[in-house]
């Protein structure tokens, strides 16, 4: 892969993570267990959507600046290929709305369904803790645009992590029922956490240039944060070490197709219109 393709792949995966979680959290809006926390969760969804937009805009800019011969074969979607063939520039919405699942590079964790409040909290907690350390490192990226996005995102992730940590503790150290639910959500989602730290060709290439984050260096910090919150919450850290993977390579769970169906239906049914 060329250097510009690594950066595009990296930017897109971060955007995809943000979009898919934002979409999932948006499903809660109006259905939360407590009005104040319905508002808080929607606020978090909004932060993720804001980051989604900045990252897709940056990804689109990168793509549009690529030499024409590099543009073919980047995306498998026919809708995108048709657009590219007319030499139209791509925008944030084209990237979100016109790609199929195998072009999405989000981690599997984030497409897992909301199920209940404990499941939603566990999913956010694992990811918020990751984001907190990830953006703290990305803030120092040699790529100015990524560094700027990271700086803003770190502020948000700091708040997100505090919020989800508090809920892990509340549920873990609440009633017997909430404890059981929290523990089983953690147990069931644990196998999706390993993927956050898998380093592929893109990670290696960009880490070497000081653009990407060295994931191995943030893993111990993540683990320490997780276990200390779990300790306070009386939650056991799962011991199983078998981890699911595939999202970063575009191999997803069955859930993603349904998310994209909802997300994309209008753009697909009435293509090429301004909304």
């Amino acid at each position: 892969m060329s250097n510009s393709k690594y950066l595009l792949d990296y930017t897109l995966r971060l955007a995809d993570d943000a979009l898919i979680l934002g979409q999932r959290l948006g499903e809660w809006c109006g259905h939360g267990p407590i009005l104040e926390h319905d508002i808080a969760l929607t606020n978090t969804a909004l932060d993720h959507m804001g980051r989604t937009r900045s990252l897709y805009q940056y990804a689109a800019e990168q793509f549009n600046n690529m030499p024409a011969e590099d543009k073919t074969g980047v995306f498998t979607s026919i809708a995108l290929q048709n657009l590219i063939n007319t030499s139209a520039s791509l925008d944030e919405d084209n990237l979100a709305y016109l790609r199929d699942g195998w072009d999405f590079k989000n981690v599997l964790l984030l497409e897992q369904p909301n199920n209940d409040w404990a499941y939603t909290i566990a999913r956010s907690f694992f990811y918020d803790a990751f984001n907190y350390f990830f953006f703290a490192a990305l803030e120092k990226s040699a790529d100015e645009s990524l560094a700027a996005i990271a700086e803003k995102s770190l502020k948000e992730a700091t708040y997100h992590l505090r919020w989800s940590s508090e809920w892990v503790v509340r549920l873990g150290d609440g009633t017997e029922e909430s404890h059981t639910r929290m523990q089983s959500a953690v147990n069931e989602l644990w196998m999706y956490t390993g993927e956050l730290f898998i380093e592929n060709e893109t990670d290696n290439a960009l880490a070497q240039q000081g653009i990407g984050v060295d994931l191995a260096s943030i893993k111990p910090m993540w683990m320490e944060r997780i276990t200390s919150v779990f300790e306070e919450a009386n939650i056991n850290t799962p011991q199983n070490s078998w981890m699911q993977k595939g999202g970063r390579e575009g191999r997803h769970s069955e859930h993603l197709g349904y998310i994209l169906t909802d997300l994309q239906f209008l753009q697909r049914t009435y293509p090429g219109m301004q909304w």
Binding site: G26, C29, G30, T42, E92, A96
Partner: peptide, 25 residues
């Protein structure tokens, strides 16, 4: 919210529905 036709519309709609929750509060 999950079906809004653009990312901008989605963000605006989320914010709007969240405002309604705030009004309820």
């Amino acid at each position: 919210i999950t079906r809004a036709p653009s990312l901008r519309r989605k963000a605006v709609l989320l914010a709007k529905v969240q405002d309604e929750a705030g009004h309820g509060l």
